[in-house]
Design a protein around this nucleic acid. Structure first.
Lengths: 221, 221
DNA sequence: GCTACATTCAATAATTATGTTGAATGACGT
DNA sequence: ACGTCATTCAACATAATTATTGAATGTAGC
């Protein structure tokens, strides 16, 4: 389409940004990058996707202003351009959640319908944490945990949960969280823990939201 | 694409919403629907686009949850699903504006061919205002105007401009502004006023920039 | 210089999005 | 029932997006 007036040109620019969000793999990249800067190959490994493919997606995102890149030796590290990107992602997700019966159907259908799977809010968790009455587990992979996690949270990657759940104190409620409000791993963790008879709930948000609300985050080393 | 796990299904849903925003014509539809419910043909007339085309775009938006439709006799009125849609649009626009190098390049490239449409700077406007030689109009919706506007600015929402432009003094130059440097409404306002033979220019910035530069802002009530 | 490796580029094939056209549907008034 | 009008549908052509592959580029270490 040839652009003949500034109004069209501007809508074209805005649409370009929206398009950059309009692909499931790129959204997954946004969610990973919300945890911190990552190299192309690290992201490719996370998505189980060819490197060239991820590189192309990242370039689309860079052209739209979602991410910036910086070379570090052999690596090129990508990071989110600014907090506005996460705001936009959250706003898009919110529209999807409000409309989508579909989103809810997918989630409930997969994780089995349990109305007591209500998530716990940041505020409630903060209160319970100060009482020391709850075990908080971070079900993300160790590298993400190392870059920042909830204070006092134990890292129990989903892959290891079946082994390590035995070490959890059965009398304490467990709260699981991961990358974001709809990050699938925390759903799966809760389902698995409940199956073993533990009391488990999911944090409504993920680490990025926790951080964004101005709360404390622990970092390794 | 066959969806085999809930993570993919969720990202697919979110991407669907983003895609619905990822087209310039649909963004223009969002902006028109932000003024209120409209029929398909009314929207088609505004965009100067075939009805069938607009109908298809609206259906994409409905499937994504951006709009709802309701039949009224022969007409079908579409409206924005909820305020979250405008929030998402604003967030997307904000990302685009921050990454404004490309936005600026596109707009500049167009304006360079018509230097009489150069935007007016804050400094120049402030000077002209103290001379009383200029009419300043705020083309944002009334609720935004009420929360703060340039001193002496008249609120003429874009939707009412065609009616109210008749009341403007033809000998005075008009300066229009809205939400930010690339807010489309001020472009449209200037275009419309010029079409009616008025001398009109656009303020280079929007209210946020005016406020940020430490200048006075009037607030209602 | 050479090798190893991370990233990007270029070319392709497959899929999806978009615009256009004309026909079909649904609702109103006569 | 009939004609009219707003909207939607269906079919097609064109353009854009995406995944895949292998080659090219750039960097570090030797």
């Amino acid at each position: 389409m040839s652009i003949s007036n500034p109004k069209q040109a501007l809508y074209e620019q805005f649409a370009q940004v929206a398009k950059a969000f309009g692909n499931p793999q790129r959204l997954e990249l946004v969610e990973h990058l919300a945890q911190g800067a990552r190299s192309v190959e690290a992201l490719a490994a996370k998505l189980a996707t060819p490197v060239a493919n991820v590189s192309q997606h990242l370039q689309v995102m860079r052209r739209a202003g979602l991410v910036t890149s910086e070379r570090d030796g052999k690596f090129v590290n990508y990071r989110l351009a600014d907090d506005g990107v996460l705001d936009a992602f959250a706003a898009i997700r919110s529209v999807a959640e409000k409309h989508s019966a579909e989103v809810e159907r997918v989630v409930r259908g997969w994780f089995d319908r349990r109305d007591d799977m209500e998530p716990i809010s940041r505020e409630e968790l903060a209160a319970r944490m100060s009482d020391g009455a709850v075990t908080v587990i971070d079900v993300r992979p160790p590298d993400e945990y190392a870059l920042g996690h909830l204070p006092g949270a134990i890292n129990v990657p989903l892959a290891e949960l079946s082994v390590r759940s035995a070490g959890l104190e059965p009398s304490r409620e467990v709260v699981a969280y991961c990358r974001g409000p709809w990050c699938v791993m925390s759903f799966e963790a809760v389902a698995e823990l409940r199956q073993k008879g533990l009391r488990a709930r999911r944090l409504q948000d993920g680490l990025p939201e926790w951080k964004a609300s101005g709360r404390i985050v622990d970092v390794e080393g």
